[in-house]
Design a protein around this nucleic acid. Structure first.
Lengths: 194, 194
DNA sequence: ACCTCACATGTACTTAGGGACATGTACCTT
DNA sequence: AAGGTACATGTCCCTAAGTACATGTGAGGT
């Protein structure tokens, strides 16, 4: 009897493990999890509520989680089981990391040569602004954590590490967008800088 | 008659535009495009050949591309049409950027508190090594470009910008993984650093 | 009493993504 | 002449993701 819930062979499927990980902190409903995904994991791992409810059913069927309590408006809180805890730990330590990135901003940059100079500069300014703002939000979270606003539990220490990643990535992208604005658009003659 | 090929409303679907962008540089076959995705766009936008061939059919049906030539082993090279060029330009300037990231390494970091200290340190060392190596590869490409190995066309200038993004992102992730190793695992008593 | 909003869960449908499978050809080496 | 490798294109099928739609409840304000 194989209780592993990775599709067929040993591949990733991280939403599933994201849910397990969040439930490892304590019981929560689909609604709670959808909000936590949106608020905290959203920037690095998007998930919509239909997918979350569907995954919760699957995890429940697989015995990884079970209903912990029924609340007010049909609310169903799930609790992680020992099997679920073992699975998230197995995933974290044994399953190899999928390093695939998927960054539309960078994909677009391959095709900047197709854009008018003015449009491109405007685009890069908007990008820089967006990334800088997002980095600032991350720094705000980091500062709040360092002030102790979220307590000092192990979970929030991990959260601090994740926030640091968001901060560094968005800052890197903001700096990149700024730098890109200084790259001259094209060399008119054989004579340019460099 | 609506020639726009975004699914229903005005949303992203970037593989399609990635193909259009590559074809804007000149005719290429599905096989060529699959390799270029793998080699160049792979790190920021993965695509497998079945998806590419399927998209080429759709783009062809939509009049965005057309068969340019037939080659040796059933090879079919496609050429971008004026409509296709207009579409990629429209996408670049009018369509708003999807800033969704999807970084499993960072998702995992939310759950580091579930890992044994030794496993976590080993994991972070591997992550640091991977990101540092990938950043080094990007730097190598950047240096080759700056030496003029790829010529000085507008396309390669855009490529240089994209490479710079890869370099900065991977370096940020490498630095992050290194930094994370210095974060003390847990506070045993109420007395720690911070 | 009514209204509105946040809470709460789900179904249905469509597209995107990715692995496995299938097929065949030109070229190059031995 | 045979065999291997890179070239080249595709189908099939299942899973993941994402949008729209549908439904209902409890709490708080007016």
């Amino acid at each position: 009897m194989d209780v592993r819930i990775t599709s067929e062979d040993g591949e990733a499927v991280s939403l599933r493990h994201g849910l397990l990980g969040l439930l490892a902190e304590g019981p929560a409903s689909g609604y709670d999890l959808a909000r936590r995904f949106e608020e905290h994991l959203g920037p690095v791992w998007p998930a919509q509520h239909p997918k979350i409810y569907a995954e919760l059913s699957r995890l429940s069927d697989a015995g990884m989680i079970e209903v912990d309590s029924h609340g007010p408006r049909g609310r169903k809180a799930y609790r992680i089981t020992d099997a679920g805890l073992a699975e998230i730990r197995r995933w974290l330590t044994e399953e190899k990391v999928d390093h695939t990135l998927r960054i539309e901003s960078v994909l677009r940059s391959f095709f900047f040569w197709l854009m008018e100079t003015d449009d491109l500069q405007a685009h890069l300014r908007r990008e820089q602004e967006f990334f800088a703002e997002t980095a600032a939000v991350a720094r705000g979270y980091a500062a709040a954590k360092d002030r102790g606003d979220f307590g000092t539990s192990e979970q929030t220490r991990s959260m601090r590490v994740a926030i640091e990643a968001a901060n560094r990535i968005y800052q890197a992208l903001a700096d990149w967008a700024e730098w890109a604005q200084t790259v001259p658009p094209a060399v008119p003659a054989g004579d340019g800088e460099d």
